[in-house]
């Protein structure tokens, strides 16, 4: 790991000011991706601005717009939250399947969302549930927030503060995980919402994406059989040592069906 300056933020405004004053600073949330990337010298920020002291960002609350989860809420706290389990159990299940117990104790929803790893779990939940990303400057729908591999609509120095998830009628997330890294080789989040059915896929492509054909079929008939015969094209999907693009395309169908069955089983 290269050297850097460490600073602790006392508030979002303080973090924003420290970030602006640094040469090439990065925010530190739980650090479960960032510290690992810095150890491999893939990232070498001039400054780390630690958000851990900004306790206002850890709140999980019910709001008229849905479940609002602070950016610094850990995966473990989302998984253990009675509010989350009651309103959107699929989200609690998803949080409980990220990494392992120790990683979930440190890793945060804001860090995951801002990093937008193409195999991360949360982006699928945000897109399928039609979530809103709150930053210190504005609010953005998840559909326009995620921009592809490790890219988001965040401007330089902009800080994710919370995510609001509208409560769906039914939802489920099923992933086929890499047993070593526990990242999704393919993960599918299916949600039956007030505005229709949404199907979001992570792990398979360069970033999270929706499958309109599946959404239309499930909109007409919310049953796994409705997905029979709907093939996902392998073009543009990832191929690596874990799975070919053709296999990932196949897995999207399998995981989507399982997610529908899981959502129906409630």
């Amino acid at each position: 790991m290269y050297e850097f300056n460490y600073q602790k933020a006392s508030s979002v405004a303080d973090a924003s000011a420290k970030l602006a004053a640094s040469a090439d600073g990065r925010l530190l949330a739980g650090g479960q991706t960032l510290i690992a990337s810095m150890k491999m010298r893939l990232v070498a920020p001039s400054d780390l601005i630690d958000l851990a002291g900004v306790t206002a960002l850890t709140a999980i609350e019910s709001t008229p717009g849905g479940l609002k989860i602070g950016a610094m809420a850990t995966h473990a706290s989302v998984a253990a939250s009675p509010l989350v389990s009651k309103a959107i159990p699929a989200l609690a299940t998803l949080a409980n399947g990220i990494g392992d117990r120790m990683v979930r104790q440190m890793g945060t929803i804001g860090g995951s969302v801002a990093n937008n790893d193409p195999a991360a779990d949360y982006p699928a939940a945000l897109v399928a549930l039609g979530a809103t990303v709150h930053t210190d400057k504005r609010q953005m729908p998840a559909d326009s927030f995620f921009k592809g591999m490790y890219e988001t609509a965040l401007a330089a120095g902009e800080i994710v503060t919370a995510i609001t998830f509208p409560v769906p009628k039914r939802a489920a997330y099923i992933k086929f995980k890499n047993p070593a890294s526990r990242y999704a080789i393919v993960g599918v989040f299916v949600a039956q919402t007030a505005t229709g059915v949404r199907v979001a896929v992570t792990g398979a492509g360069p970033g999270v994406f929706r499958v309109p054909a599946m959404e239309a079929a499930l909109g007409a008939n919310f049953a796994s059989a409705a997905l029979d015969g709907i093939a996902v094209s392998a073009t543009d999907l990832n191929t690596d040592m874990h799975a070919s693009s053709e296999y990932r395309a196949h897995l999207v169908g399998v995981m989507a069906k399982r997610a529908v069955e899981c959502a129906l089983a409630g």
Binding site: G31, I35, V103, Q105
Partner: peptide, 13 residues
């Protein structure tokens, strides 16, 4: 009070 992986955390955290 919680288990964490100390190889992936700064002592400053």
């Amino acid at each position: 009070g919680h288990a964490i992986k100390s190889c992936n955390v700064l002592v400053l955290q």
